[in-house]
């Protein structure tokens, strides 16, 4: 016997009630529960749908769907970082690598032209300026996010990593403790290294805050074969 559309919807509700908030995880669990219920109702026709569902859910153990959600989230984190490095790597290849060195050199020249007591504030300030420039984009992305009803795990990760406020705190820490970078600024090599790292951090934020969130649709379609079908 096959479950009806209403019963399938009932299963989606059941997974949501058991803290499965992402549609990609719900989809697989619903199919699994449905298969189990269909089989058990053939073997024991006296059972109601609800009783059969309870029986199937018990098979997930005392923690219910917790393990499935946790491991899926871990796996998706891994996937996010793979996606991230795919885009980040681009900045170490031609032609973008030229931009990386040009920006580092420019920052180096600025640092060299200033006395250490002033230049020690520049890296934190540079990161802060970059982040403030990204802010407009972030709010634009947020607005798009809110209009969606179905939640996808990867989509949430993209949005969370695109959360500029975490990085603002990082920039403020460097600004508040500028003496931390005073020592490397004492030599030209150290000064160039600081410039290079600041640009690398800037690019990292650029990829997380600007590049990846703009490709959310494309990345969801690539990650979830079910994305286009729903």
């Amino acid at each position: 016997m096959k479950l009806t559309q209403d019963q399938i919807q009932e299963l989606f509700k059941f997974t949501r009630k058991h803290y499965v908030e992402y549609y990609d995880v719900q989809l697989e669990l619903v199919d699994h529960l449905a298969n189990g219920i269909e089989e058990v109702m053939v073997q024991r026709p006296q059972l109601t749908f609800k009783e059969a569902l309870d029986l199937e859910f018990k098979k997930f153990g005392v923690f219910g769907f917790y393990d499935v959600i946790k491991k899926k989230s871990d796996a998706m984190h891994k996937r996010y970082w793979k996606i991230f490095f795919r885009f980040y790597k681009e900045y170490f290849k031609l032609p973008k690598v030229l931009m990386l060195f040009a920006a580092s050199t420019l920052l180096f020249l600025v640092l060299r032209a200033l006395p250490v007591e002033t230049s020690k504030y520049i890296p934190g300030l540079a990161i802060l300026i970059v982040l403030v420039l990204f802010l407009i984009n972030v709010f634009r992305n947020r607005r798009k996010q809110r209009s969606k009803t179905r939640k996808w795990l990867l989509e949430d990760m993209i949005a969370a990593n695109g959360n500029i406020f975490i990085y603002l705190n990082f920039a403020l820490q460097i600004l508040l403790f500028p003496n931390l970078i005073k020592w490397p600024l004492g030599s030209p090599l150290g000064m160039f290294m600081v410039s290079f790292v600041v640009v690398l951090i800037g690019i990292l934020f650029h990829v997380m805050v600007n590049i990846i969130p703009h490709k959310t649709e494309e990345l969801l379609a690539e990650t979830y074969p079910e994305y286009k079908m729903t």
């Binding site: 096959k2 479950l3 009806t4 559309q5 399938i8 989809l27 697989e28 669990l29 619903v30 199919d31 699994h32 449905a34 098979k59 997930f60 153990g61 923690f63 393990d67 499935v68 946790k70 491991k71 899926k72 871990d74 796996a75 998706m76 891994k78 996937r79 979830y224 074969p225 079910e226 079908m229 729903t230």
Partner: peptide
């Protein structure tokens, strides 16, 4: 057990050893 199978499948998928495809069967995906 169901609690062990899906985490294992998702881990193998994240490691790039498995890939997934989705089909509509009966009234569900």
């Amino acid at each position: 057990t169901e609690g062990a199978l899906y985490p294992a499948l998702h881990k193998l998928e994240a490691e790039g050893l498995l890939e997934a495809e989705v089909a509509k069967v009966d009234n569900r995906l």
